[in-house]
Structure formats: C-alpha cells, structure tokens
Design a protein around this nucleic acid. Structure first.
Length: 923
RNA sequence: GCCUGAAUGGUGGAAUGGUAGACACGAGGGACUUAAAAUCCCUUGGCCAUAGCGGCUGUGUGGGUUCGAGUCCCACUUCAGGUACCA
C-alpha cells in the first residue's frame, strides 16, 4: 500500500466517531485535565488556514495528556450570538438563526476533516435556549447581589435591604455608583420606586444613566473593548458619547481582585500587563476645594498631592454636575455655548483635533492649603468618567495642564528645583520641592515621593480629603439595542424593573417581522408580538451583549445537559478549572476580563470552587496571508516575471495564491482564472513565471485565503497539522506560506516507508539495534520535553531526524517503531492509528501508553570535547563519558604536548565542564 | 508618550552561557528515466583557498561582564503588538 491519506483519514475519523473514542465522563480513578480552545464565532466566510492553529496545538496537548493517563476534557462549541449575523439578517431578511446554523454546519464539517479529539456530545451554542437559560440565570443572580467591601465578596441584596431597614446607610461599605447617606427612617419612608432606584446604586447588575459608546450606524451601544480609536471594531463606524439608561455590570467592584488574581495564574507577562493597564490602578488622594462664596465643595482626584501649591486653576469635565452648580450668571451663556459645541463633537473628532478648548465658569475655588482663590474652568480634556470628573491643574508639572495654561494665559508656578518650565512642563516624579510651604505644611526640600506622602497625611488629618485608589476599569455596559442576543429576564411593573421567576427561564427570544429598530426608535424586540408577561407587564426590549454568552461557557462544558444547574457540584468539583486555555490575544481586555469577573462572582456565590477560571493560557499568533502578484506591462495583456519587472513599466495585480506554487504561476490556470486574462502573454525567466509576494491580512479581496479543506484534500489532515506546527512557535504571528508543506508530506511518506514497501508489511519482531534504540529514545526525550513547553516546531524536526536515522539504519523492528507511532499520535493521529493497527494492535492508539525515555540508551561510552587554549587552536579530545574533572584536564593537557607551558606561557587556569568544552587559559 | 515583545542565511526558523545556523523550504549539481513527475545522493551564511588540509569573518548598532556571549548587563536603532487627554 502506498500512503493514501484520503482513505486512511476518512476511515479512522469514522471509526472514532462510531465508537465514541473521545467521549469523556467523570472518572475519579484518573486525574483530570481540561484543555479548552476559545470557541469560534461562526462567520459566513468559514474557516481559513489560520483558525485551526490554536486548535491543533490544543489537540496535540489533549492527546498527549490522555496518553499520559489523564482524563481529558476537550470540548468545542460556538459563540453564536453576534452582530455579523444580525447585520446580514437586516440586509437579506434571513433569520440570523438560519445563517448562524448554516455557518455552524460548515465550521463543523471543516473541523471534522482535521481530526480533532473533541467530545462533540458536549457541544454548546450560546444561542441555544438550554444554554442561555444559564446566562440569564447568572444575570438574575447579579441583579440579586451587591458587593460588600468589608466581606470583599458579593452578598445577597436582601442583606443590604435588612441593613437599610435597621440602620440606613450607616456602617455600609458597599461598591456603588455614588456614595449615599440616609437613615433607616428615610429608607422605610421611601416609595417602592425610590427604593428600587436606590438599590440600583448597589446591585451588581443594575440600571443606570451612563455615558455610553453609541454607534449610530449599528444602532447600538458598544462596550469599551468593542471600540478602538473612536471607531467600532465591527464595521469601523464612528462612535459617539451619549447618556443612556442602560443595564450595567459592576465589574469595577472586582477591580482589585482581578488585579491580585493575575499573580496566581500562569499567563504570559505581556498579557497580564495588558490586563493590569486595563484595570489601571492608581493610588492618589481625593481632595475638596470649597467654591468661594458658596457652600459647594469641588471634589477632585490627584496622584500628585505634592503639587497642591502649584494649582493655578481647576478644570471640570463638560459633563460634570458641578458645571451647572457653580457657573456664574455672567458666564452662563459662554459656558452653555461651549457645552453645546462639545456635545456635537464625536469621540473621534475630539481625538483627532487636539486643539485646546475650554471656558471659564466665572467661579473661584479656594486652595485649602494656601487660601488663595483660583479660577474654575470647563474643558473636554478632563473626562467625566474617571475620578470625580474634576481636576486641580498644575501646569508646571502636567503637560495637558501646561498646554491649557499657555493657551489661556494662566499662571505657571514651578515646584521642583531646577525644573525649566519655560517651554514645556516637567512631568517626572522626581526632584526636590520648592515654592511649597504654608504656615501649616512645608514641603520644601523634600523629594517628590516624600512630599506626596506628607501631603496625603496632612489632608487626612485636616479632613480636607482622603487617600483614594482609583481604577480605570469601568463597569461593563450590558444592554444592546439589538435582536440577536439573550433577552433579559426582566419586566417593568409600574416602571419598576422586576425579575421574572427563576423557574420561568429560559425567556426565549421572540420572533420579529424585521430586525430593525421600531419607528419610535425602540430596539428590534419592540416589534415582537405579546412581548409581555401574562399579567401584561412589558418585558425588557434590550438584549445582552456578545460577551454575556462567552463569559461562563467553560463551566457549561463540564455539565452541558444539566437542566437544573449551570454546573453540578459533582462536575464542578471534578473538573474544577481550565488547565490549559488556548486563544488569541485580541480577547485580553474583553472576554478574558469579563470571564474572570463572572467566575469570581459565581465563586462568591459558592457555585464554582475556583476563584480563577483559566490556570494556564497560551496565546497563539495570528496567521497572516501571503499574497502573490503578477506584473502586467502597462496598457498590454503581457505579464512579466518578477525578476524582470524592473525593465518595464508594470502594474502589480493580486493573483489567486491557489494557482501559484512556490511563487511560480501556473500560467494555464491563470488564463482560465478570469476572462480578461484568457489571452494573456508571459515574459518568463528560466522558463518560469515567478510571482512577487507580500504579507497582508488574509482576505478574499487579496486572493490570499487558503482554505484548510483544500490542503486536507491534497495532502491530508496529518500533513496540515504537522505543517501548521512546523511553521514556527505557536505564539508567533507569521504568514501562511504553502511553500514547504511538501517537506512535511515527504516525512510522513518516509514514516510510512518504515512500515510498508508496496503491499508488504516490513515490520519484524527482531530486536532493534543499539543505534535504532538510541535514535528512538532521543526522540522520546525531546518530544516529551517539547510538548510540555509547547515547542511543537522542534518536535516535528525531531521526528524528521529520527525517521531519517531509522530509514538509514533500515530499521523495521517493532521494538523501535512502536514508540515512534505513539509519539506521533498527538501530532498526526490518523497515520498513527493506521500504523498502530499495522503493528497488530486492535485497540485504538489513543489508549496507548506514552513511552518513557530510557537514558541508558543515550549514554555514550566516550564524549567528544572541544579543547581550546585561550579560546584559540580549538581541537577535539575523546574522554570517557564518566571521566572526572581531573582526568579530563590531564587528557586535555596531554594532547597539547602535556605541557604546563603553552607557546612559552604558563598555563594558569583550566576550566572543565564535563560534557561541554574545556578551555585552558595561559599567560 | 507609556507598556510588552522581537531583531540570527535567499526564506520559515534551531541553539540549559559552551563547535551558531538543527529541521525544512528554496537554489545549484548529480543518479534513475526516451522524457516528465516521483524518488534518492551531494553542495548551500559570507569572503579567501581549493588537488587536498584549511583560514578569516559572522546572530540590528556601540560598550561591558566572562576563560567563553545569539544568549547576561548598560546605552542606542529599527520593527511588531497593546494602550492613551486616566490627572
């Protein structure tokens, strides 16, 4: 038999499926291992060759762990709610479920061809009611809890209500939107609506007026991580700021725990750093500046308390509530004109044009340390959402304040010795303080760090302010004005949001006639008939965002068909957490934050036993496209080969990479490719047409999309798998380059050749030679070590070396071949299964034992050592492998004439590292 | 601006501080063949030498530590990714 990948692969894939080889059950006799891929959003374009990179890597690890006796959970599913299907539905009128399911089927058939060991009985889809029941359930729990800072965990909102009834807000230490103060009597006197509104300030899932990223083109709000540089990530449409009443999740309550948790997990430093930046902890002080002639106090946040003597003005964010409170009648018109101007600018416009703008409110604040009056301004360079939305401006030591002061001609007071602030501000947090003394506080002469600490102490003692930690991390906006998402299990009773009863879940997504907003501007669910409770109360019209369904999916895989719980106690305690998670870095500030938050919340409730969901995370790189070009000579239909193109005036044209092989164009297929090239002429070099190339994004318009199906069809899944791993380290981004795939395919044929010559099985029961066993055990050692560090590319190289050696040794001994088959099984499972059965086994190779390296085979009787004298005149000596240091020295010296003197110089030092290199220093 | 990471042949990439360039592609040469494909063998960082041994040089740049540096330290250059009026 020749190596026939098609026949082998389809036969074994069918066998695995029929015998449910990869079905996983709880088995307390074995240690568990949970390997997870970030599940895909099934897009209409299908899989390209870049998608499976991470899946192959995780598949290898899963199979490896299984061969090592672990009970491996390795599931797959689909993140099937999302904007693209809905946008497509709007354009075509097709129900998003229909296109989504079609896409899922296509993904599945593509995935199946690659031979993954997923337990498909555990498949989940986020748009399936039996799945999103638990998304809705988690939302209800978040609604029903608040974050208690003293207990440092989520507690039932009922506890808080009981506290309010007895003591009001006194003694409450809870995460909230704004600090509130009321007595028990006041609470008990509130109307139901007032109570509901008050509790919204504390609930973990809550309704609030929030500044949102509104994307008019998509007709919905977007989360911060769905917006980049003022444009929507999906579609690239402009995004503006808008105040809307929205569902939110109090992610910020978990900021510190999300930060601390990073120290306990095995992720790359760069990813942890990205999350740390996103959480953005900054330690500073909150200070109050009284407004002159009123009892209003401006509260500001600063990390530079030391610079308080250099405050020459204050700035409010345009959206700040203070603006209206303090603006003087004389300035009101100017301020309102400015606010109007700012409102009409989109986020993007604000960013592009960094002109300094602002307006004076007419009010003055009193510096609590100097007693001096300082003007209060409004400017859009201060953000409403961070800190208190108001700052003290220190132009000498902050570049933004500096630009503002220069523009409006405000005074600049330097506070650090030697700082030259005539051209720019001095932002560094170092140096000795000057100009910073009052009768009560003297910072002069202190280092900046000391001064910060001293000022903080002072303001706390004087009650001017307090030490405060701020986080950049915002609460997640959880409403989307879209159709294709999870409905909220919420209705409105006399305007008061109320949860549906838990046993009514799931609340299924209703049918609508169109997927567009209603004429009155309500979300698409406003079109649904009878979208109300049995009593006639209206149901929530918003749906949940994409990250809702993907935040706890890893838990659902543990117990996917359980209708009574998200995950049973038994399943949770057995599978615990994801041991290895593989996916792209693009989810660093979205999914990977939300998931950790969601999991910590469930941990607080005692639903899950682990605080962190993903123990180890590996980021696979992106596979870019590698485009090919042909060069058309201007105004002709003649194409010139890349090497000769400089002699002509040419235009490069993208050509389909599938009709190019090793950068050589198949000219016949090119003529057939498109009608306009039917009569194309070619100027060849060395009889070939060589194409140019460039690395670009993989996309249809560049004709550089390589479909895995085509590769599988031509070379087989095993070749595809090995080649994707051989391409380079999995974390690295690299262009897909089909050049070179032949080498991997050739290797598999050679491996096959160790077993078969034509139809003859060559395998013998003769013992293997020492050399053959050495080659095999070297392989065992190398591959075992490589897999543990995900260095799959060097593993593949090791296989090639070993097979070459065995081929040269003409080794067909079962003793040598059997371990090789088991080792290759994770990488190329189909051929391994075939060869395993050729060796006479009737069980599947998946249940084999991972071979153990016997170091004895690797021991050399003698070792070659390079000896150099002063780094020069290097030569080799042979010594016994177990030779002592002294013996090696002796032999080394003997070889160079046994001399204590070399080239007339005395030997001073001999450094010997057994097995390595001997260097002798003279002089 | 800040934070991460990277820089090695024509290409993708190997190298616990110890013979740089494993493995593969590509290229060149050869064998087999009427021919092609497939397969196999040899050469392949650069320069010099070549009948043969070989020699010099070489991991972005400049320094440093070390008997010894692609690897560690300092400074710089370039590229990639993340992030940004976050006070």
């Amino acid at each position: 038999m020749e190596y026939n990948h098609k026949e082998i692969e389809s036969r074994w894939q069918q066998y695995w499926k029929e015998n449910k080889i990869y079905k996983t059950e709880i088995d307390s006799s074995k240690p568990k291992y949970y390997v997870l891929d970030m599940f895909p959003y099934p897009s209409g374009a299908g899989l390209h060759v870049g998608h499976p990179l991470g899946y192959i890597a995780s598949d290898i690890y899963s199979r490896y762990k299984r061969l090592n006796g672990f009970n491996v959970l390795h599931p797959m599913g689909y993140d099937s709610y999302g904007l693209p299907a809905e946008q497509y539905a709007i354009q075509t009128g097709q129900h998003p479920e229909k296109t989504t399911f079609e896409n899922i089927d296509r993904y599945r058939s593509q995935l199946d061809k690659i031979g993954f060991c997923y337990d498909w009985d555990r498949e989940i889809r986020t748009c399936d009611p039996s799945y999103y029941k638990w998304t809705q359930w988690a939302f209800m729990k978040m609604y029903g809890h608040y974050y208690d800072r003293t207990a440092d965990k989520a507690l039932p909102i009922g506890d808080l209500i009981a506290h309010f009834e007895k003591e009001g807000t006194s003694g409450v230490n809870a995460a909230c939107g704004k600090e509130m103060e009321f007595t028990a009597a006041e609470w008990n006197g509130m109307s139901p609506k007032e109570k509901s509104d008050t509790l919204m300030n504390y609930r973990i899932a809550f309704l609030a007026d929030t500044m949102v990223n509104w994307c008019p083109k998509l007709g919905t709000v977007l989360a911060n991580d769905e917006v980049s540089e003022g444009l929507s990530l999906r579609g690239g449409y402009p995004v503006e700021q808008k105040l809307m009443y929205q569902w939110c999740l109090r992610v910020s309550a978990y900021a510190q725990r999300l930060l601390d948790g990073l120290d306990t997990i095995d992720w790359t430093d760069s990813l942890k750093e990205t999350q740390r930046n996103w959480i953005g902890r900054s330690e500073g002080a909150e200070m109050r500046f009284p407004i002159a002639g009123s009892d209003i106090e401006l509260e500001i946040f600063t990390t530079r308390a030391d610079t308080v003597f250099g405050v020459t003005f204050m700035v409010l964010a345009p959206e700040s509530a203070y603006v209206d409170m303090i603006t003087t009648p004389e300035q009101r018109q100017a301020v309102e004109a400015y606010l109007d101007e700012v409102k009409h600018k989109t986020e993007r416009e604000r960013m592009i044009d960094k002109k300094v703008t602002g307006v004076f409110t007419g009010a003055y604040a009193v510096n609590p340390l100097t007693g001096k009056n300082i003007p209060v301004w409004v400017s859009d360079y201060v953000l409403a959402g961070y800190g208190t939305g108001a700052i003290m401006a220190v132009p000498a030591h902050d570049s933004r304040d500096y630009a503002f002061a220069r523009h409006f001609d405000l005074p600049i007071i330097p506070l650090i010795e030697g700082a030259d602030v005539s051209e720019e501000s001095f932002d560094a947090k170092s140096g000795k303080m000057i100009n910073s003394a009052s009768s009560e506080l003297d910072l002069n002469g202190m280092e900046v760090k000391e001064a910060i600490a001293a000022t903080k102490r002072f303001i706390e003692e004087k009650g001017i302010g307090k030490v405060k930690v701020n986080y950049r991390l915002r609460d997640a906006i959880f409403s989307r004005q879209r159709y294709w998402g999870e409905p909220f299990p919420v209705y409105y009773k006399d305007g008061i949001p109320t949860l549906l009863p838990e046993d009514s879940l799931p609340l299924e997504l209703p049918e609508v006639d169109k997927f567009l907003p209603t004429e009155t501007g309500e979300p698409p669910l406003g079109r649904a008939k009878n979208w109300q409770t049995a009593e006639g109360y209206p149901l929530e019209l918003n749906t949940m965002p994409g990250f809702a369904g993907s935040s706890a999916y890893y838990l659902r895989y543990m117990d996917p068909r359980n209708n009574d719980a998200l995950v049973s106690k038994e399943a949770d305690e057995y599978w615990q957490d994801v041991d290895l998670y593989i996916g792209g870095t693009e989810h660093a500030t979205g999914h990977l934050i939300y998931s950790r938050f969601w999991n910590k919340f469930l941990y607080d409730l005692g639903v899950v036993c682990r605080d962190e969901p993903f123990r180890k995370l590996v980021n696979q790189g992106m596979i870019q496209g590698r485009s090919n070009f042909v060069y058309r000579i201007k105004d002709t239909n003649t194409f010139v080969s890349a090497g000769l193109r400089k002699q002509y005036d040419t235009t490069p044209i993208h050509v389909d990479v599938n009709i190019v092989s090793n950068d050589v164009l198949d000219t016949e297929r090119f003529r057939a490719w498109r009608p306009e090239f039917k009569d194309a002429e070619f100027i060849l070099e060395d009889g070939k047409y060589v194409c140019g190339y460039a690395v670009e994004k993989m996309s249809k318009s560049m004709f550089n999309v390589v479909n895995p199906d085509d590769i599988v069809d031509r070379y087989g899944a095993d070749t595809l798998r090995l080649y994707e791993m051989f391409l380079g380290p999995i974390e690295a981004s690299k262009p897909w380059d089909t050049n070179g795939i032949d080498g991997v395919n050739r290797f598999l044929k050679k491996l096959w050749g160790l077993f078969y010559k034509g139809d003859n099985l060559l395998v013998s029961d003769e013992p293997a030679s020492k050399e053959a066993l050495k080659a095999v055990h070297k392989l065992i050692k190398k591959v075992t070590a490589d897999i543990e560090i995900f260095s799959y590319n060097t593993s593949v190289a090791a296989f090639m070396i070993c097979v070459n050696e065995l081929t040269q040794l003409k080794c067909h001994s079962r003793e040598a071949l059997e371990p090789v088959v088991v080792l290759i099984a994770p990488f190329a499972p189909h051929i391994a299964e075939e060869l395993w059965h050729a060796l006479g086994h009737d069980t599947t190779v998946c249940d084999a034992q991972w071979p153990v390296c016997n170091e004895e085979y690797l021991v050399e009787s003698t070792v070659n050592m390079a000896v150099s004298f002063n780094g020069k005149a290097r030569y080799n000596i042979q010594v016994a492998a177990d030779a002592s240091r002294e013996e090696i020295e002796k032999i080394a010296l003997a070889n160079e004439g046994a001399a204590k003197w070399i080239e007339g110089k005395q030997v001073r030092k001999i450094i010997v590292v057994p097995g390595k290199i001997v260097n002798i220093v003279v002089g």
